[in-house]
Design a protein around this nucleic acid. Sequence first.
DNA 1: GCCAACGTTGGC
DNA 2: GCCAACGTTGGC
Length: 156
Amino acid sequence: MSRRTKHYWLMKSEPDAFSIDALKKVGVEPWNGVRNYQARNHMRNMQPGDGVLFYHSSCEVPGIVGVAEVASDPYPDPTQFDPKSDYYDPKSTREQPRWDLVDVKFVKKLKRTIPLDEIKGHADELGEGFALIQRGSRLSVLPVTAAQWKLLLSLE
DNA sequence: GCCAACGTTGGC
DNA sequence: GCCAACGTTGGC
């Protein structure tokens, strides 16, 4: 594993399923259940220490609610092998796993939610390519530039 | 390899 | 709860 500069990401979670408060409680959580290749590929590019914006989706006020940190290298998502899991993937084998994940560690909860609504208001500064505010984008794990990271957290 | 049908995401 | 947008599946 080679050292490199810190990278930044945004990860979505439905608070009913797993909220920032839940992460605070457990401290570290394996980010299992991602079954989208693009999102998986982003996780494969993660390294311990990378910054994560924790985002609540499908809820009353969708938006960024906290900061977390990548706490492991990518490794195969164990739920893909478990027939009893909702995330079971019969096409995945231990020899050739399809789905990887990383552990995510709680850093802090923001004093307030930064609503998607408000984030959209900064579209010019964030740039056209920011997947979070792209029309129709459903990507649940996406890269954030250092400049975007700084701007978004300055809104707190 | 095309594309219709289907399932899922996620804002509203 | 609705539905637009997107990704995946599978018949041909």
